[in-house]
Design a protein around this nucleic acid. Structure first.
Lengths: 120, 120
DNA sequence: CAAACATATGAACAATTATTCATATGTTTG
DNA sequence: CAAACATATGAATAATTGTTCATATGTTTG
């Protein structure tokens, strides 16, 4: 096999050109890759995970979430905004309160898959 | 991680004590919550997502991964270490190279769930 | 309307983290 | 063994991000 001359690779490595081309074709669009990473980033914080577990159990207002997590109302509100933007949670107004709830079942499934992976 | 002045919260807000207690009981152990967040944090970076998509297509050496992602060998190696620690990838030695591959099918399932959520 | 309440938000700070650079480790080959 | 190669790693830096604090917005109720 001949050495491949690769302009980008300054050092002389034995790049497998055919393979790299195949991998490149298998790669989704940058937009999708970015969106996927952004989605998982939302799950990658224990405060937000705890909020999701709370909402697994019951629809809950911000105040009770803050009390449950032993955090300030502000911190919880900031995190709820992120969860909302990722369409993982939604909310309805009830009197003075905003009651948050899970947007759909993907949330549960994704977290269940994560739990499965961890138990090994 | 954050400590809140609960006493103040109780003075000002109408906490639903029964509900908060129920939510508290529904919450998994801190260890599990932490591990879950750590796992998803690993998925929450587009470089690591791209590495995983490459490995979906084929087992690959570090050098070809670096070329495919158009990144330095060092950067890829650092990220592979994180993926390895999370048990998402593994590797075998073949001659001079280290061939990385997906550790198990959870990886695929988790990413598929993420893609499903995004397409809406 | 005013007071009380519930939630949201902007700015600042501290902590985390991805990449780069330089170099080390370990393997193969002549 | 020495040279070449493939990968790993430590330190430094820049960028990102979670929490706090102060305050704003918007609702309900007397």
């Amino acid at each position: 096999m001949a050495k491949t001359d690769v302009a980008q690779c300054e050092e002389v490595h034995e790049i497998h050109r055919d393979k790299v081309d195949a991998l490149h074709r298998a790669m989704p669009d940058d937009d999708e890759l970015y969106d996927l990473a952004e989605l998982f980033k939302v799950f990658g914080d224990s405060t937000r995970i705890r909020i999701l577990f709370a909402l697994f159990a019951a629809d809950t207002c911000v105040c009770d979430l803050a009390e449950t997590l032993n955090m300030t109302q502000s911190a919880v509100s900031h995190q709820l905004k992120i969860l909302k933007q990722a369409k993982l949670v939604s909310f309805r107004k009830e009197g003075k309160s905003a009651i948050y709830f899970l947007a759909d079942d993907h949330v549960r499934t994704i977290i269940d898959m994560g739990r499965e992976h961890i138990e090994e």
